[in-house]
Design a protein around this nucleic acid. Structure first.
Length: 539
DNA sequence: CGTATTTGACCGGCGC
DNA sequence: GCGCCGGTCAAATACG
């Protein structure tokens, strides 16, 4: 094509013939330029030599060019004549496409060698393809590294928790409470089991959490929840040992005669994680499937509270309550309890890991707090220095509850008090790589969760979507928020217990998530609250 | 027709 | 002991 020629396409195609084509650009070799607005040109064009054509006539073949293979598939052959008016148009009756040729000496024509342009274009495409391949390779590598990091982190956590257990055991050996001794023995045996076990991650960590209960053996408040004979009818339905974890009936009553591990396990099961998030949807998306089994009007809130149970696996004990906030009905409070007894879809791992970590934090925090009360130094040096700083215990809640407030913009240093009876657990500022590194990693570390939720999501992750229902976008962002929350929680170097809990999930059987959750980020965990009942910590 | 939801009944804990 | 409350059950109903 001669210098000064400028070919443009105006797609007036009313039937969308061209608009349905890939929009990867134009083949510059033909010097065809898409004209957005009047109809985006999605086709590539190629100027074809036409021996018989006069100098003022151009023959242009429109076609598709495969981006990767660089193969060209002609679609339409058109020729245009240059006119004195500097502009010529040719319409195609079949497609409605208008090819416009102008002799204006525009800058597009600065390159007059179509062949060199073509070569350059191809080279660029090849380069791009190579880059893509490289990018994929890097991604794979990244995933692998994340897995390794997760493994290392898990091992570290296991070791640290083991150390904590040993230290506490030592402490207890001097201060003795028979129950404590029992607990220590229990921990030790559990740890030993762990060591002999398949995974490197301590399943027992979760069970160790509620140590505080044990620290307060005499008290009436803790105890024996589900296993005692009082509840009855529910036992039948529960197939897993954890199945009856939810319910008012299970409020702890300390029964010293019960094995320690049972009580601790029960406590773990009783731990709840509340997630506050803004959502117009009836439920937030957490990637699990739920079945509603009840709805009640709760006192002090005009909005009904809905009860759901996880239906992703038979006998899964996980329940959740969903209720709108009375003050701000755009805020949805979802409270989870229980541990899934099945693998979770990637989409569910964000919520799962978040809540699991939070619950673990709570439980371990209770232990630490209790220990801290008895042994401040120990506490300060071990698990939860933050909590020790603000660890005044609330006496109201029947269940230990962690509240993740995702309704505010991130303000890491802000300690926000939510319910009057709860105290805040300050998470440290998420690291800068919080989004790009930590978040994706978490799902790998935390394979299974304490909790999750349902069908609206499930598509946060590109692969393995179990949920059939495509999630609204806000669900996606919510999942990302959860990932961020998880990241924030786990970003706390002192938050080993949370890690332990999360890791426990892995042991729970779910395969690690590929961690491909991309981070978009409206993630904001600016606040977390811990609410510990009196029974939990003892007064 | 199978599954999910709704909704009133029921149960146990707790406070008075 | 009674009533309130939170939570669960299960029959009835709705839905696809």
């Amino acid at each position: 094509m001669d210098k000064g020629w400028c070919l443009t396409l105006e797609n007036s195609d009313p039937v969308g013939f061209f608009s349905s084509k890939p929009d990867f650009g134009f083949d510059l070799s033909s010097r065809l330029y898409g004209k957005e607005g009047s109809g985006t040109m999605f086709l590539n064009g190629r100027e074809e030599p036409s021996a018989s054509s006069p100098a003022d006539e151009k023959r242009v073949v429109l076609g598709e060019v495969d981006f990767f293979s660089d193969k060209y598939r002609p679609i339409k052959d058109m020729s245009v004549k240059k006119e004195d008016s500097h502009t010529a148009r040719e319409s195609d009756v079949n497609t409605g496409l208008q090819l416009v040729i102008a002799n204006t000496g525009s800058d597009q024509s600065t390159v007059d060698d179509g062949i060199s342009l073509d070569v350059e274009d191809k080279r660029a495409k090849n380069e791009l393809a190579k880059l893509k391949v490289e990018l994929e390779r890097m991604n794979a590598e990244n995933q692998r590294l994340r897995g390794m990091l997760s493994q290392v982190s898990s091992n570290y956590t296991a070791l640290q928790m083991h150390l904590v257990g040993l230290m506490q055991q030592q402490q207890n050996s001097t201060a003795h409470d028979s129950t404590q001794e029992l607990e220590n023995l229990d921990r030790k045996s559990l740890e030993e089991k762990q060591e002999n076990g398949k995974a490197t991650v301590p399943r027992q960590f979760l069970d160790l959490g509620p140590a505080s209960e044990i620290d307060e053996p005499t008290n009436s408040s803790s105890e024996e929840r589900t296993t005692s004979g009082s509840h009855h009818k529910k036992i039948g339905r529960a197939e897993s040992p954890e199945s009856d974890s939810w319910g008012p009936n299970k409020i702890p009553k300390l029964n010293p005669s019960k094995p320690v591990d049972q009580s601790t396990e029960a406590t773990m099961k009783k731990a709840r994680v509340s997630v506050r998030a803004r959502s117009e949807a009836p439920m937030i998306s957490d990637g699990c499937q739920w079945r509603k089994y009840g709805q009640k009007m709760a006192k002090g809130n005009p909005c009904p509270r809905a009860y759901y149970r996880c239906t992703m696996a038979v006998g899964c004990p996980v329940r959740k309550q969903v209720q709108r906030c009375a003050e701000d009905r755009t805020i949805l409070t979802t409270t989870y309890e229980g541990t899934h007894n099945h693998p979770l879809p990637p989409a569910a791992t964000a919520m799962a890991s978040t809540t699991s970590a939070a619950a673990s934090m709570l439980l371990s925090g209770s232990m630490s707090s209790a220990d801290g009360l008895m042994n401040p130094n120990f506490l300060a040096r071990t698990t939860l220095p933050y909590s020790s700083n603000i660890a005044t215990i609330s006496a109201s809640a029947p269940f230990p509850t962690v509240t993740l407030d995702l309704t505010h913009s991130p303000n890491p240093l802000q300690f926000q008090r939510v319910p009057p009876t709860q105290y805040q657990f300050p998470f440290p500022v998420p690291p800068q790589n919080f989004v790009s590194v930590t978040t994706p990693q978490m799902p790998q570390v935390f394979g299974q969760a304490l909790v999750n939720q349902s069908k609206f999501s499930g598509h946060q992750s590109s692969q393995n979507n179990i949920e059939p229902i495509p999630p609204p976008q806000h669900h996606q962002s919510f999942a990302n928020t959860l990932s961020a929350a998880t990241a924030a929680i786990t970003a706390d170097p002192n938050f080993t217990a949370a890690l332990a809990a999360a890791i426990t999930s892995i042991m729970g059987g779910s395969r690690p998530d590929s961690g491909n959750t991309t981070n978009n980020n409206n993630n904001n965990v600016n606040t977390s609250t811990i609410n510990k009942s009196s029974s939990f910590l003892g007064n």
